[in-house]
Design a protein around this nucleic acid. Structure first.
Lengths: 338, 338
DNA sequence: ATCCATCGTCGAAGCGCTTCACTGAGCTGG
DNA sequence: CCAGCTCAGTGAAGCGCTTCGACGATGGAT
């Protein structure tokens, strides 16, 4: 393993000079800088991460904690994770992957050992048990998702309240008067996942304002669960003409079921989904949807975090505005005459 | 930040003693051990990762490289990643997440900087550009997936050849004489992804042995692509009664299409999929499938790697035997009389 | 009683880097 | 013409840990 000292010797300078060339924290004459860079290249030198971390008390690692609870739609998580990793790299950071197994202890361990300089937490619950720890720690952190109490925290998330409202608004504008929400799995609501509750909130208040009839039913993923949910909804409110789906696993089953029942989309019923664009365009029908900007969330989280690490950047809540893309699954409500 | 020295002072022993208590590399009397452990607990001591890495030249970090090429089925990758992370933790390792962005340079950087002690590579191509680097490096590594030349490498993968054969065998036993393979996206084959080619290999040779007619068509994910692929297949070989699907994104569309065309599954046609169990049971029909043991692959990869790091463990190729679960999507071939 | 292992503990060296304090050399300006 | 800069470079301290060799104290074998 090539060391800094060897590079220094090879270039005929002192170790500190090499270090300064690397970090750029002091001005170095062009000639020596080139010489040092040349030596680094020739010897194939890579600074030792451990030594660096020890001396600078900066590991240049960001911990990413993905609890991966059941019933979460995995591709979104993954997309965020990848966005976090690649954005982090552009800022000179690597990403440490933490899963839920360890629970809050992981926070303590990582903060205590200096393994990571900062952390990003995904899949935050409204009253997450990791939050008190986070507030106590000096370690900068960013949440992806919104807890109930955001004081002293930096959070990045899609504005799910506005998302819910946007969906209802779109359907209302098209003349729908009775809509149903096919939601996430019951477990998601039971554990008070922020995004699910906030979406519902947005939907409810907008529906109330517009005087629209609303039914919300959680729905486990898959065909059978969706079939049961749909049956229940149509049983309770046969007049339902609009569906808001916030559950990627229910999208395709729902479309298949409606088709089977002879209900044409969008002529008879409209369907609007809250899902990644990819799901919306790959479905058997190009779905009108509010997309989940996974990439953007990952990127923003890292950028806030890096800002904090650099001293700029304060605690704040970043809500990404939802964007509705109209595709072919929504249309005017059928006239009641039919 | 509490240091080892403070713990030592608190416990009234020397620093080295504390270190030995932590590592267990020398025998320590029960009384002092307890005293030290007590101090560690009271002070809330966590060993500094950087210092440890520097002194021991072991970071206790495993790098996990996920290129995440297009058209890969993400949930499987994620499941593997999570299995890797949790298994690694049980062995005292953390996981560093590397994406494809950096390409082969990431291997060089991580190996050179001592950031990680070892690496796991996912989504390996038959002739992967990272392999030469890997062979050169002293760094232990394990591949998830099989390249063309496995000499000097440790690999873990599902036995996709056997998987392909198993699928054909199952259909053959049921009397099907003409089968079609709905494969991964064209791009997957173009870049010579090992698992896709090996599955096809297994399917082909088994079909040849059994004198079964075979048609293979790559298929982009989603409804439209699947529709096109299916139409082509039925056009070329109207007598096809069995489908092997190796593309999670085509499963549900295929079922929907068959239904629409009035072809009953499994009475008229049989469908067998190579996919995670979750996909097989959540589909609109409980699918006969060969499951992709993502968890197992992740776990085994880590265990081989840890064995290598411990000095035990040699280069070898671990092929996990495929398991076929018969569900309701396959049945006897319809008699030709019909 | 004596010798040699073994056990439990300590001190110190050093892992490879960053960073602070310092030193000349070369300028500028009064 | 020199005080007072800035600029480039050096040396050394030390980050917190592991680990090696040393050492006194036991204790079993001789």
């Amino acid at each position: 393993m090539v060391t800094l000292a060897e590079v220094a010797r090879h270039a005929g300078v002192s170790a500190s000079t090499v270090s300064y060339v690397l970090s750029g924290k002091r001005s170095i004459s062009t000639s020596t800088r080139l010489r040092v860079e040349q030596s680094i290249h020739e010897l194939g030198y890579h600074p030792n991460a451990g030594a660096r971390a020890l001396a600078s008390s900066r590991s240049n690692i960001i911990a990413l904690m993905i609890p991966l609870r059941t019933d979460m739609y995995v591709p979104v998580m993954m997309e965020i994770a990848v966005a976090v990793a690649t954005t982090a790299r552009t800022h000179g950071y690597d990403v440490l992957l933490l899963t839920g197994e360890e629970g809050p202890d992981a926070v303590r361990r990582v903060a205590g050992s200096g393994l990571a300089d900062a952390m990003i937490l995904m899949d935050v619950e409204l009253d997450d048990e990791r939050l008190p720890l986070l507030r106590d720690t000096a370690q900068p952190s960013v949440l992806i998702g919104l807890p109930a109490d955001t004081s002293g925290l930096t959070c990045v998330d899609l504005d799910f309240r506005a998302t819910g409202a946007l969906c209802v608004e779109h359907l209302a504008t098209l003349g729908h008067r009775d809509i149903a929400v096919i939601g996430e799995a019951p477990a998601v609501y039971e554990r008070h996942t922020g995004f699910a509750e906030r979406t519902l909130d947005g939907i409810r208040s907008r529906a109330r304002e517009s005087g629209i009839g609303l039914l919300h039913r959680p729905c486990g993923g898959g065909y059978d669960a969706t079939a049961a949910t749909l049956a229940r909804i149509l049983d309770e409110r046969p007049g339902t003409t609009g569906f808001v789906v916030q559950n990627e696993q229910a999208v395709e089953p729902l479309l298949a079921l409606l088709r089977q029942q002879g209900r044409a989309v969008p002529e008879d019923v409209s369907v609007i989904a809250v899902c990644p664009d990819q799901v919306a365009v790959q479905a058997s029908l190009r779905l009108t949807s509010v997309s989940i900007p996974a990439q953007d969330m990952g990127r923003q989280a890292v950028e806030r975090l890096v800002a904090k690490l650099d001293g700029t950047g304060t605690d704040e809540v970043v809500l990404i505005a939802p964007e509705l893309t109209v595709r072919t699954s929504t249309g005017p409500a059928p006239s009641t005459a039919v």
